[in-house]
Amino acid sequence: MAAFCALLSMQSVQAQSLPRLNVERFTFSAQPASPSIGRAFRLRIELVVRGYVRRIDNVTLPILSQLALRGDERTMTHLRGATIYRETLTVRANRTGNIDLAPATLDAVDARTGQAEQYSSNPLRIVVRGGRLQPFATAESAVGRLAPIFARIAFIAVGALTILFALALLAAFLLLRRRRPQENAPIPGPIPIELEPIQERTRTERLRDAAIVLRAEPTRHVVRSVRVDVRSLVGASARETLADVLARLSDLDRDLAPLLRALERAAFTSDEDLPSAIQTCIRAFAEVTR
């Protein structure tokens, strides 16, 4: 019984460190939804909670390693008994095609049930256009985008053939009447489509981006996001511990072992040790991206 009570108090201590919120809405959107490559656009996270809340700082952003961060603005407004938290990120895409962003998350105690919860916004897919014609990220998107082009070409071709047929009829008619040859108009050829190749980012680029994100915001939340990103780089699953990952690290990824260890420390060490642990991570990043 005493052990059970101790366990309950242990869990309640953990829950007490989280804010009590009554979350109404949590959305994640892009403006515009299909930005052009190289052009800045905005990602907006909007969180609506019931009641007056003075500050919200538990929102964890998804990894934006495929986008270049240009600015981050947070606002809190209070309206009709609700608090609206908006975070606007100005970003720029450096490659074309589909970019899938994970949901933003929020750790809080649900004021209705008193239970610690992790809220998630919707995930987001951004289709980055690369000039006049869009490149294809997948076979499905290629078919989806080429279909209207082929339909248009077919429509033009049918129209042109109809006109040619009418002209031929007219020419035949005139030939029969005037006995003069008539030249047909040349048929236009197919429109050439030039596709931009999808640029696959290298391991070094992804690590460099992660290091930039960590340097820009050296917090526990970012450390954990970066840790997830680096673990995914070496193919770690959600059910593997660091020892599992290190045990089956390929020779190509062997140099990432110190970085993985440093990120593990930064993710789980005490708050006092966190700055030093993050510096170790940054040094480890420098080693592998040199």
Partner: peptide, 23 residues
């Protein structure tokens, strides 16, 4: 549950760490 926490702390101490890892 309590035993897991205590043993994980003991293992971290044996590994020379002042924090516990999932491992």
């Amino acid at each position: 549950t309590l035993a897991l926490v205590n043993c994980a702390r003991a293992r971290a101490l044996l590994r020379g760490r002042d924090y516990v890892e999932p491992d």
